[in-house]
């Protein structure tokens, strides 16, 4: 097995406008877990987590199971054990994680995501779109979000969010 060099998708320093910060987050491991019919509860038990209901995240310590579609969840922060009654796909390196936090995070995302994110509590997630990009949005609570999109689209996502942050800050600066 060759020794591969791990690189971040972007390697950019965090971007801050009006107290709101966009940053790349480490995403060492992401595994898609699609339980075989009727096996959701068994998968949850084997992982020590409840298999999430639609639009939800369950967590235990570092491990999180994020609902990602019909009969599908993404496991973060932990490796999937062998022999789960599910179709298991290692998607590490296929995704990028960004975090957006601060007082304007909801307003920034309102320009890009077709959902009302005000008061979205921790424990909620949504499979939706960031402009034209596929997005798994995870609410971290108190106006902070983790955004997962395809790694190949990392620079586009960064550009779109950065531009929305800049325009919001510019508009705020106009109002006395």
């Amino acid at each position: 097995m060759p020794d591969l060099i791990a690189k971040p998708a972007l390697g950019l320093p965090p971007l801050t406008h009006a107290g709101t910060t966009l940053a790349e987050a480490a995403l060492p491991q992401i595994t898609a877990i699609a339980p075989f019919p009727g096996q959701s509860a068994a998968v949850g038990t084997a992982l020590g987590l409840t298999f999430p209901a639609p639009n939800c995240v369950t967590e235990a310590g570092e491990a999180r199971l994020v609902w990602a579609g019909r009969d599908l969840a993404f496991l973060l922060g932990k490796a999937a054990p062998e022999g789960l009654p599910a179709a298991v796909t290692d998607q590490s390196d296929g995704w990028v994680a960004l975090t957006l936090s601060g007082p304007q995070a909801v307003q920034v995302l309102a320009r890009l995501v077709p959902l009302d994110l005000r008061d979205m509590p921790r424990g909620q997630a949504a499979r939706t779109a960031l402009n034209h990009l596929p997005l798994v949005l995870i609410a971290e609570g108190e106006g902070a979000f983790t955004l997962l999109t395809f790694r190949s689209m990392a620079r586009t996502a960064w550009h779109e969010i950065g531009e929305a942050m800049e325009k919001l800050a510019a508009r705020a600066a106009l109002t006395p």
């Binding site: 959701s40 298999f51 209901a53 639609p54 009969d71």
Partner: peptide, 13 residues
């Protein structure tokens, strides 16, 4: 309505 039956996910076995 969903096509092809109900989702089996969501904590329901």
């Amino acid at each position: 309505e969903t096509v092809g039956g109900d989702s089996t996910a969501g904590g329901v076995a």
